[in-house]
Amino acid sequence: MGNFLRLALRQMDVQLRMRVLSLWSLGLFFTQPAIFSAVGMLLAHAAGNANPDLIYTVIGGGIMGMWSGLVFTSTFDIRADRREGTLELIVGSPTPLRRVVGFRSLLNILAGSTSMLAAVTAAVLIFDYSFAGINVPAVILSFALLLFGLWCMGIFLANLLAWSRLSGTFVDLLEMPIALLCGFMYPISVLPSWMQYISVVFPIRWSLQAMREAMRGTAANAELLSLWGISLGISLVFYLFSHWLDVKVHDHIRVTGELHSI
């Protein structure tokens, strides 16, 4: 247990200093979401809408920051380790790559939460958002499930990245579609219905919906419970799939020699 915790802390410490504390991730956590929020607010202004729903337009930016930060740090890690030649040292150690990736993704998500914090702060201080009727415990639980869903998706993507360097293109491409399909900055109902069907497979769509309902305090407990259940269930599916993929990846990269190639 001590070993496990020490490994966790060391991984997260190195991750924080090597990858997260850079202008690059600050851009992902803060600049990009701020730009998208600004586009939303300015479009509202251009359309003569004086009161856009801040839960989407501003706080949604925080979700976007968490997601973009996760996609890029989790995947950039593997790529950077591949490039720096440390990936094969990690794989060649007795510690499973899965564990290393898991701790790193955890840190990425915790760091990404600062994006959420910034968005909420901006909503309150700049736009006078009041949080009237907020169901605090439900928001916290929803947020925890959101984090868990993001983490499961993060380790899944990192495994894909370890599989092959070509998948990098694919993973880069995922950032926007998932922001788009999961409705980070608008309700899912804005999407054409066929798109709404695609997003059901992403756990974060459900926890996000629960969190928003809880922020407004409008949802019945039964509804929240079902949203939480769905989110947790799909997250676990992602987790189990990553676990399975991890074993495959470990064999695959040792067959192809992808481990050391740039």
Partner: peptide, 27 residues
Amino acid sequence: FSYMTSKFGFPFFSMLYFVFIGKFVGF
């Protein structure tokens, strides 16, 4: 594949994203 995605991927999806953000706020 990687050429097409690097060129059209992000612009296309961010464009759609902006369209939906606009639709939601009444633009």
